[in-house]
Amino acid sequence: MSAEERTTDEVPEWKQREVDELVDLLEAHDSVGVVNVTGIPSKQLQDMRRGLHGQAALRMSRNTLLVRALEEVDDGLEDLTQYIEGEVGLVATNDNPFGLFQQLEASKTPAPINAGEVAPNDIVVPEGDTGIDPGPFVGELQTIGANARIQEGSIQVLEDSVVTEEGEVVSDDVANVLSELGIEPKEVGLDLRGVYSEGVLFTPDELEIDVEEYRADIKSAAASARNLSVNAAYPTEQTAPALISKAQGEAKSLGLQAAVESPDLADDLVSKADAQVRALAAQIDDEEALPEELQD
């Protein structure tokens, strides 16, 4: 560490120490991310820190110090300073950034939403029995746009009802109803704003991997290669049987179409003739003209 040389007088020693610690942390890990921690209660934050233990380290500090540390490490990490705004923290891991993203997503927990907050997604009051006795609450539900009715002695919601759309501000009425029903529409957790990993800066949308899609791509790629190999008649170990089969099918198709008198085709030619004669007989609606075996 170069702490001894860096005795800049304007920086209090404790700050420099904290920056040095941050720098150590950053330098010791392959991937560093900036996470938004706005609105996460400290208890939950501690749980999350514990949950990440061993896989990723979460560090909070003053934003100015975070920026200073990122700049001090340089090496590309300074690109992350654009995300240092509001209540944020740094996560550092040796896992790849995709794994980090998955971990953080998995650690998110539902939380109630307050009046005045912006809905992060469509807020839905689900269809079903609310379990609440008949009373004014049915009116409250109706007021916020839920299709509710008293039925069989309790208040029931007849269909999934969107009460606040994504991006809209949650009203007092909605917040009250949600709280009464125990609906927690928010997902609270560490929100990755960006990750820097081994020279590449990733945004969250780049980090969300759909493994199924990759699996499908592999299949599709394999099928394409197979098709090309067979259709271009470029034999490989895997496609040689398919090529033989194709050649055989072509010969058979030609042989049948031309009615080539070959022992290999005799069975099929007889079958074909029989199918044809039956097809023609099926068009004949005069009983008397039909062969005995086809008459009723």
Binding site: L228, Y234, A242, S245, K246
Partner: peptide, 22 residues
């Protein structure tokens, strides 16, 4: 491979399903 692909429309060949005999 080069010879086999010479006269082949690769796009088309890729899309055209080859029968799976196996």
């Amino acid at each position: 491979l080069v010879a086999a692909l010479e006269d082949v429309d690769i796009e088309e060949a890729v899309e055209q399903a080859a029968a799976a005999p196996a």
